[in-house]
Amino acid sequence: MDETGKELVLALYDYQEKSPREVTMKKGDILTLLNSTNKDWWKVEVKITVNGKTYERQGFVPAAYVKKL
């Protein structure tokens, strides 16, 4: 869990989004888990830094590609 009590997951593999509802992740990324009720796709939040500014983006990743921490 992070400092706000949200559950975290670890990306076990790289994943490139294939639709606007998904998010890209790299092996080793730590993501915030938002919803894991679907056994195949989990909703996560990723933080992306571009030119020194951090953005948060929500989307789905394959559940088999992440592990709860």
Rank of each mutant, 00 (worst) to 15 (best):
L34K: 05
Y65P: 00
T4D: 13
T54G: 08
K67R: 15
V50Q: 11
I48V: 14
Y55S: 10
A64S: 12
V50L: 13
L8H: 10
E17G: 15
K39C: 09
S36K: 07
Y55G: 11
T24N: 05
K6T: 13
A63E: 03
N38K: 06
V46Q: 15
N38S: 12
E3Y: 04
K39R: 11
A11P: 01
Y65K: 06
K27C: 07
E56W: 15
P20V: 10
G52I: 03
L10F: 08
T37L: 09
E22H: 05
F60P: 00
A64C: 13
G5K: 13
N35A: 09
G5Y: 11
K26G: 05
K18V: 08
N51A: 13
E17A: 15
I30C: 06
P62F: 02
K26M: 08
G52L: 07
V44S: 00
E17P: 14
E22Y: 04
L12R: 04
I30M: 07
L33M: 03
T37E: 15
T37C: 11
V66D: 00
A64P: 08
P62T: 01
K39Y: 06
G5P: 15
A63W: 01
Y55W: 12
D40P: 02
G52M: 09
T4M: 14
E7R: 12
V61W: 00
Y15G: 01
L12M: 08
V66N: 00
P62G: 01
T24D: 03
Y65C: 09
G28F: 04
V61D: 00
L10I: 15
K18F: 05
Y15D: 00
L34R: 04
K67S: 09
Y15M: 01
V61Y: 00
P20F: 07
G52F: 07
M25C: 05
L33R: 01
K18D: 05
E3R: 05
E22Q: 10
K68W: 06
L10Q: 11
E17D: 04
T54F: 11
G52Y: 06
V61C: 04
A11C: 10
L10Y: 09
Y13F: 13
T4V: 12
G5M: 12
V23H: 02
L12Q: 03
R21P: 04
Q58I: 11
K47Q: 12
E7L: 09
V9E: 00
K53D: 13
V23F: 06
E7G: 10
N51P: 07
V23P: 00
V9K: 01
Y65H: 06
S36E: 15
K6Y: 15
V44C: 04
A63M: 04
W41T: 02
R57D: 04
V61L: 02
S19Q: 08
E45S: 15
W42L: 04
Y13T: 07
N38W: 05
K43A: 08
T54A: 13
K43Q: 13
W42K: 00
A11Q: 01
E56M: 15
K68D: 04
N38A: 07
E22F: 05
Q16W: 12
I48W: 10
K6L: 13
K68P: 09
A11F: 02
L10S: 04
W42R: 01
V66L: 15
K67F: 08
V50Y: 10
G28S: 03
Y55R: 09
V46F: 06
W42T: 03
F60Y: 15
D40K: 13
L69V: 12
K27G: 05
T32V: 15
G5D: 12
K53E: 14
A63C: 06
L33Q: 00
E3N: 11
D2Y: 03
E7N: 11
A11M: 02
T32C: 08
E3L: 07
T37V: 09
